[in-house]
Nucleic acid binder design. Sequence first.
DNA 1: ATGGTGGCGAGGCCA
Length: 256
Amino acid sequence: MRIATWNVNSVRARLERLLPWLAERQPDVVCLQETKCIDEKFPREEIEDAGYQVALHGQKTYNGVAILSKKPIEDVTRGVGIERFDKDARVIGATVEDVMVLCVYVVNGHEVGHPRYDYKLEWLGALRDFIVDRFPMDEKVSVCGDFNVTFDDLDVYDPERWRGRILCSGPERKALTDLCETGLQDGLRPFHPEGGVYTWWDYRRRGFEQGNRGLRIDHHLLSPSAMACCSGVEVDFEARAGVRPSDHAPVIATLE
DNA sequence: ATGGTGGCGAGGCCA
């Protein structure tokens, strides 16, 4: 089973990239973030025609997450069960065959010290509690999505420039590694121990066009049994190139 | 270059 996660930065704006990508890559499960539309406006028919069932947790203008799957989607959950954190549509979970998938769009935080930064850290704590409650670590689990946090400087093209800043600060990184204390682990790093693999390149700085100046902030966090059957986690760099791309590339985990 | 681009939705917010 191949599971992809992709922050598409509006599913409607990205449909002309998403549909050919589904046809070419044929992932079994796709976790989308920042769909940016209510469920009634989600391009359901086009995606079903491409061979995928959909589970939606949408919202107008901001946020919005979805799970697409070739196989039946079961036991769909939305949010983390705490009203304060569920006002935004940032979490959707489902089971496909023997794999439990949780698709997350973590709060960005704006900048270190901003109220939204504190909220981000609280939000990550609530996500950890939800994972502890709901995801048995003897199951195959992927918690994947846009975490808006780098693990360490190997995930950063220019660590000095980014040191201590949003997406790279110590408290954010601790919140991310605390998520992994539940038993999950970074799925990609074992396959790319040298680092330098990125998933997001800023539109404003032309970070992609000007030479792979990116960060790795999109992740697959895998349970031990998922990791044990994982033969690779790769970034689809090509999807970031071309006409009207998202600012994020997809990350695909292959479970044998 | 503390700017810049992109999406939404129709001016400003968010990333």
